[in-house]
Design a binder for these strands. Structure first.
Length: 586
RNA sequence: GCCUGCGUAGCUCAGGGGCAGAGCACGUCAUUGGUAAUGACGAGGUCGCCGGUUCAAUUCCGGCCGUAGGCUCCA
């Protein structure tokens, strides 16, 4: 076993505290429910968990009892004592206690790592196998709160037994804990599923089926705004938009390999031919490439598709817009010469950054994933591609981390993640080199010597899935979208019926400029209409009454600003138009 | 797919073996108003679906579907 000092170095004091609290939780559970067998209990971001095996399920009430007992245990102020023993001794001891999971861990350590000794930690009467380190005594433990119970497979293996995991938050001070709870509350308020419902963006229905999204008119406006922007940006950058069919003969999925790999897709039969609903857009693009003899002069060739795909996601992973069974990718495939690889990658990275920034995301994280053990292609090809990716990143002076061996079996890749307003990380963009598909579909171009050659293929997505990105946008802005994305940009609120005619003129003015306006004609008081406009996060409310009609003005209420007073109607229209066209973020 | 919880009006939710409840939204009427909720009246339900127990099930039990949080997956 690695030496103690090295491990202590690796664990921060906070992690050590959380880790020790996990032990305290195990002690509490064993004291309250002695028949329970313990699994493992590591520190995690914001807290810790411990896995238990017990006949009865833990309930929310049990959590309170356990939490109380933990506090009592901490008050006892037991020391955490470390003791090193022979592995065989430890096995005997845990066997005698019936702690089969601990026995399994030690046996693994012995057989896989060849350890002789293991370390045990004694806390009062409780002994746990653990490499440590721990706090010296329970006095040093901070504040914590048990949060929830969840199922978790032993060793993360879905074929093994399902244990009960108790999650807890833990911090050094009460203030930090409360701050974190506040953050969770804020995240809950921003939940795209809740906002999606209240802002009438999208819905789902159990009669329709799990993981299937229905766009409401407001959601469709948001989606179209994103799509239109993407089309324009792609065309600017010499991509050609294409569209493949939603179903392709299964033979194609056999050629691509998805069929043999058991890719989660849907199949059905027409005229005794089996078809598969597309879970990816690439095969169609490969066939489109093959419709002509391509010259090296045609490369790079960039096919772009807003491609709607269907995937048989497991029921348990579905999550609003973030994980649905049908979604649309902003997908593109770039066919190029190996020598063009680097500059293509640079262009894609710049493209991604541009797009992210336009949507209001300033912080990104980049990961480069290299060749995994199981992979196809020769060393030279892999080296060249990986180097191209890496050089592109270096040339752009982009900070990145390397995920060694985490690439796809068919090629290395770059993933670009963004951070949202709550500093959460979301995986969106991906740039993947693919050596497999050009080969499998036998695509080629003619080089300057008249020879047939295999082009390199890049798969890339910027937003990833439009649904998922919309979910991220909703949470990032908490539903208060910038003008260019807002389903309703201006709400016109007349004070009384006699102002409707003037209001209608304003509606026309705005619509003529292509702006999205809602005219609230309801027989309600202005306070009520304004309140609702605010709740719907509409960026502008224009209030019109006698004063405005006579002066050809509007009284502007602006989101994030409040009552701005009167402005001439002409200037007001121009202001909204500017905010719309400039895609200003506020 | 697995574990645990949940499913009552369009929405948010209360209730609980014996006539199904509230607020908001919706409809009608009155009110024509100046920056976060005008008032009155009305309509709205196979209590997710199927089966079982019971004189009686929305309520208890089982299965299924959906959903929430995790796990596994999504590399």
């Amino acid at each position: 076993m690695a030496n103690k000092e090295a491990l202590e170095d690796k664990m921060t004091p906070l992690e050590r505290m959380r880790h020790s609290l996990a032990h305290v939780m195990a002690i509490a559970v064993k004291e309250l429910y002695p028949e329970t067998k313990v699994g493992i209990g590591p520190p995690i971001e914001n807290g810790f968990y411990y896995d238990f095996d017990r006949e009865d399920s833990f309930t929310q009430k049990d959590l309170q009892k356990i939490e109380k007992r933990m506090k009592r245990i901490i008050a006892r102020n037991d020391a955490f004592e470390r003791k090193e023993v022979l592995a065989s001794e430890a096995i005997d001891m845990f066997k005698a206690q019936g702690e089969k999971y601990k026995v399994e861990i030690i046996e693994r350590l012995v057989s896989e790592k060849g350890v002789d000794n293991v370390s045990l930690y004694y806390t009062g009467d409780f002994v746990d196998l653990c490499r440590g380190p721990h706090v010296a005594s329970s006095k040093e433990l901070g504040v914590f709160k048990l949060t929830r119970i969840a199922g978790a497979y032993w060793l993360g293996d879905e074929k093994r037994e399902m244990l009960q995991r108790i999650y807890a938050l833990a911090f050094e001070t009460q203030a930090e804990l409360e701050e974190h709870l506040k953050m969770l509350e804020e995240a809950d308020k921003r939940d795209h599923r809740k906002l999606g419902k209240s802002l009438k963006l999208f819905t789902t229905d159990e009669s329709i089926g799990a993981g299937l999204i229905l766009y409401q008119p407001n959601g469709m406006i948001l989606r179209r705004a994103i799509e239109q922007f993407e089309r324009e940006e792609h065309i600017k950058r010499d991509y050609q938009e294409v569209l493949g069919p939603g179903i392709l003969n299964t033979k194609v999925w056999k050629t691509s390999g998805h069929y043999q790999m058991g890719y989660p897709m849907y199949f059905f039969e027409i005229d005794r031919q089996e078809y598969g609903i597309k879970p990816m857009n690439c095969p169609a693009h490969l066939y489109l490439f093959k419709t002509e003899i391509r010259s090296y002069k045609d490369l790079p060739l960039r096919f772009f598709e807003l491609g709607t795909v269907y995937r048989y996601e497991k029921s348990g992973v579905l999550h609003g817009l973030l994980r649905a069974r049908t979604f649309t990718q902003d997908d593109a495939h770039i066919f190029c010469l190996p020598s063009q690889l680097k500059s293509e990658i640079i262009d894609v990275i710049l493209f991604v950054q541009d797009v992210f920034k336009t949507f209001g995301f300033e912080k990104f994280e980049v990961e480069l994933s290299t060749r995994p053990e199981k992979s196809i292609g020769d060393d030279e090809t892999w080296d060249h591609a990986t180097k191209s990716l890496e050089e592109a990143l270096k040339e752009l002076d982009v900070a990145y981390e390397i995920n060694s061996g985490d690439g796809a079996f068919y090629g290395p890749k770059i993933d670009i993640k963004l951070r949202d307003a709550l500093n959460r990380v979301w995986q969106c963009a991906t740039i993947q080199c693919d050596f497999a598909l050009p080969e499998r579909f036998e695509v080629s171009y003619i080089d300057s010597n008249g020879k047939k050659c295999r082009p390199v293929m890049l798969h890339r997505a910027i937003l990833g899935s439009l649904e998922r990105f919309m979910g991220i946008l909703i949470e990032h802005y908490a539903g208060a979208f910038p003008v260019w994305l807002a389903p309703v940009q201006v709400n016109i609120l007349p004070i009384a019926d006699r102002h409707h005619e003037y209001a209608q003129k304003l509606v026309r003015d705005l619509k003529r400029k292509g702006l999205r306006v809602h005219f609230d004609k309801r027989n309600e008081k202005i306070g009520f209409k304004l309140r609702e406009s605010r709740e719907n996060r509409v960026p502008y409310a224009w209030i019109v009454g006698d004063k405005e009609v006579s002066g050809d003005t509007v009284s502007i209420w602006q989101r994030g600003v409040g009552d701005r007073g009167a402005l001439s109607s002409e200037e007001a229209v121009q202001e909204v138009l500017d905010a719309h066209l400039s895609k200003a973020i506020w």
